[in-house]
Every structure is written in structure tokens, then in C-alpha cells.
């Protein structure tokens, strides 16, 4: 069943066409990787899905409802969450608070609860806390314990990426968009995160779209690979099919010169 379907979406600004008549779909429970050379439109792709950019034409359908033009926070509410390529945590908030605040759209208490310390309020706070710990625990021992009370900016780079993912998990999405999750990590960290991504699907039930450059990760975890270039899909299929597709090779490496010098 199609969880997300992108129909013939075109988006251009400043004279550049970032996405051109793009078609894309992902089924529930899939892990799809989106790859392509720099400038192919991958970040715009994510921005369009999450509502930070509005297509000039075309439609995006999530769970049988169009989400074009919907505000970003409403899109998250409907069940799409993302991480950012350049990690954008809330640096001065504690690690725990970063994960707690991401549960905002799944909780309801407003003014009366905290002001009168109602039972509903206390229960909700406890639940938020419990869930935050559970999510942070997914990453092993790195982000729990005394660390939870530390501000997010003390974290190492790899831990920041993990916290990014934890935050996205906390919004209880159905569809998780990971923007270059292993960028900047060393091979050991990448391998570990690859396994975690698999568990995100198997244990937590997320459908995942991942933009990545690291082909090892792409190969190890994807069900399907989609290749973008100049805003269009130029190939899709399994990793093996795609990596041997001449059009893909040409997009990355260019066509060899036929005429001898």
C-alpha cells in the first residue's frame, strides 16, 4: 500500500528547476534510499515533502490525503518526521528536553494542566518522560543516565546525529526521512547506525526514506534505491541494478570522451 506518493512534482526558484516532473512512491514498511550526485535536488526533495517548499505543480499524497501546502508542523502531526543534513538540535536545551519537546504534537496539556497541577498533567509528563528515556535508550548507553540533563551542545558529532534521529522518532511518525544519517561518521559508527536503521523498521515500524552518499550503507539496508539527477528520477531498483545502470554511472562520472585527443 502506498504510504507516500509523489505525482509529477515540479519545483523551481530563482531560475533553477530543482525538481522536474518527479514521480516517487514508497510503500509501508519499506526502506528506500535516494541517491544522486550533488545538486540533484535531494534536499529540495525532502523539503518539499515536509512542507518547507511548495511545488509549482504536481501533488504529494500521504496516506491518501494531499499534503501540498500544508504547514510543516501539521505535516509532522500527520506522521512525517525528518532529520536535518546539518544537524540542527536545540543546542541549549538538555538532551532529554530535546526529545521531550519533540513529542509536542502527541501531547495536549496547555495552560490549565500545569497551572493546577492536575492529574492529567502529571500523568502526561510522566509518560513523556518515559517515552523519551525509551527512545534515548535505543542508542545504547550514550545518551542516557547523567547525560540526559546536559545541554545538547556538549555532544560529540556522532552523538548529535543520533540525537537528531531520536528527536524525529519522538514525533511518532509513520514515515521517517533521514537526511544523510551517517555523514561524517567513521566506519564503525556508520556500521552501527546502519544496523539501527534496520531496527527502526523492524522494531519500531517506521517506513524510511533515506538520502545518503555512503554506498555501503545504501547497499546494506535499502529495499530499493532511487537515483535522482537534475531533479528527475533516472533509475530505480535494487542496489545492484542501479549501480550497474549506465545512466547512473554517467550521472556521477560523466560520459567518457569518444573522440581520441
Amino acid at each position: 500500500m502506498n504510504l507516500l506518493k509523489i505525482n509529477d512534482v515540479t519545483i523551481s526558484f530563482g531560475g533553477i528547476t530543482a525538481l522536474s516532473h518527479l514521480d516517487f512512491h514508497v510503500d509501508e514498511g519499506e526502506i528506500v534510499s535516494v541517491i544522486g550526485p550533488n545538486g540533484a535536488g535531494k534536499t529540495t526533495f525532502f523539503n518539499t515533502i515536509t512542507g518547507l517548499a511548495i511545488p509549482n505543480s504536481g501533488d504529494i499524497i500521504f496516506e491518501d490525503r494531499s499534503i501540498v501546502g500544508i504547514e510543516p508542523n501539521e505535516i509532522t502531526n500527520r506522521g512525517i518526521a525528518r532529520t536535518f543534513q546539518n544537524v540542527r538540535l536545540f543546542p541549549n536545551m538538555t538532551i532529554l528536553d530535546n526529545v521531550k519537546v519533540s513529542q509536542h504534537c502527541r501531547s495536549k496539556q496547555l495552560l490549565l494542566g500545569p497551572l493546577f497541577n492536575t492529574k492529567a498533567f502529571r500523568e502526561e509528563e510522566a509518560e513523556i518522560h518515559r517515552r523519551a528515556e525509551e527512545i534515548l535508550g535505543f542508542f545504547g548507553t550514550r545518551l542516557i543516565g547523567y547525560r540526559m540533563q546536559q545541554p545538547a551542545f556538549v555532544l560529540s558529532y556522532a552523538n548529535r546525529r543520533r540525537l537528531e534521529i531520536a528527536r524525529a522518532m519522538a514525533t511518532q511518525p509513520k514515515l521517517l526521512l533521514l537526511d544523510e544519517p551517517v555523514a561524517g561518521m567513521n566506519p564503525i559508527e556508520s556500521a552501527e547506525l546502519t544496523r539501527l536503521i534496520g531496527r527502526l523498521r523492524s522494531e519500531w515500524g517506521f517506513t524510511i526514506i533515506m538520502v545518503e552518499h555512503d554506498m555501503k550503507v545504501v547497499r546494506d539496508v535499502s529495499d530499493r534505491v532511487v537515483v535522482l539527477d537534475h531533479g528527475e528520477t533516472i533509475a530505480q531498483g535494487s542496489y545492484e541494478e542501479v549501480s550497474s545502470d549506465p545512466r547512473v554511472i554517467e550521472a556521477y562520472l560523466g560520459r567518457p570522451k569518444e573522440d581520441a585527443s
Binding site: 515536509t50 518547507l52 504547514e71 510543516p72 508542523n73 501539521e74 509532522t76 502531526n77 518526521a81 525528518r82 536535518f84 540542527r88 536545540f90 543546542p91 541549549n92 536545551m93 528536553d97 521531550k100 519537546v101 519533540s102 509536542h104 504534537c105 502527541r106 501531547s107 496539556q109 496547555l110 495552560l111 494542566g113 500545569p114 498533567f121 502526561e124 509528563e125 513523556i128 528527536r167 519522538a170 514525533t171
Partner: peptide, 25 residues
Amino acid sequence: RSRLGRAWMAIREDEQVAEAMGINT
């Protein structure tokens, strides 16, 4: 110390990301 307070702080830190995390700014 409530949900609203956390949302406020997130908005102060990075409003765009706060929206992406589902907060109705």
C-alpha cells in the same frame, strides 16, 4: 517546566526546526 515552556524554548532556539518537530509556533 511544562510542555508549553519546552515549546517556547524550542522556538527561541530554532523556530524552523521547532515547526519541523510538530510544534505549532
